[in-house]
Amino acid sequence: MGSQFVDLNADGHLDYITATFDGSPHVSYGSEAGFTTPERIKDAEGRRLLVSSIWSDEAEEHQDLGRSLPDGEATGERCISALAFDWDNDGDYDLLLGTYEGGHLYVQMNEGTRTTPKFTGMNIPVMAGDVAFALPAKMTTPKLVDWDGDGDMDLIAGTYSDSYSQEGVGGGVYLALNDGKVGEPKFGALKPIIAPVERGGVEPTRPDVGLYPTVVDHDGDGDLDIIVGGYSMWSPKGRELNAEESARAEVLQAEIKALEEESNEVFAKISKDIDELDELELATDEFNDAVDAIYDKHGEAMNSNRKKMTAAREELEKYIPAPKRTSFVWLYERI
């Protein structure tokens, strides 16, 4: 959930702009008393802004819509980041919308005024060099910053990579310099400024996945440093075990494996039961009630399994520490 503070409606109070995983940009307007209840940003016709995929509160389901893309075709991309930016230098804020899948960036023009924005509802792809802006490892959020000090706004953006695997290359932070001019931005190719690296190690040393960057001169030396939130992943080094401890660890590992298989069997049963429900074409409320009943039926087995698994893992941790995944916020000080 990237954050930006701009006066979107020119009322003298900074507003809080962001986007959420429901697929739309949101604003919490600033006021004398502070930030007000967040609301979705709408287009000139009163419709929520989006790229393609959204969570619909009304229908209580995910939907994939093509109404905001030039060819009218839904793409499955979900807007999860938003920035206000006066793209055409006409004095009002346009919006940049970033997507999770594919890490694309779109501009949505404001055809209203500073005080009364009227967004078109149509997304125009932003280019990075000769290709569409894209971060295939899934974009967290873009940020606007004059990185090279030439008076126009450049873009930095972070990536997620695979958020859960303990192996493989993690996320990074990328830069696209603006080689255009104020009112006619032209972004160059994306280049890594914090390179993704193979995750791992025995202690946390950097953010590995889900890199959310922001930029500030942290140490007051005149250059820009980067602050990055994200998950670090590491595997603590275990201690030497005696024979008894090694034997106990083996027993616990076997127990955990058996419990995992048992859990998989329960979930397979649940999936099968839900698949059978699908064939009945029930109304939404009826379907949801029936799903709840299925989970209730298997609840005792699931709870029992979970308790045993937790106990076994807690005990195993004393002998063989499990891989860790914990979030922190990191400072990259420029030197």
């Binding site: 959930m1 990237g2 954050s3 900074l14 994200g230 998950y231 979030s327 916020v329």
Partner: peptide, 9 residues
């Protein structure tokens, strides 16, 4: 925090 995202203001 779940995917902490910093900003300065």
């Amino acid at each position: 925090r779940a995917y902490p995202s910093p900003a300065l203001h």
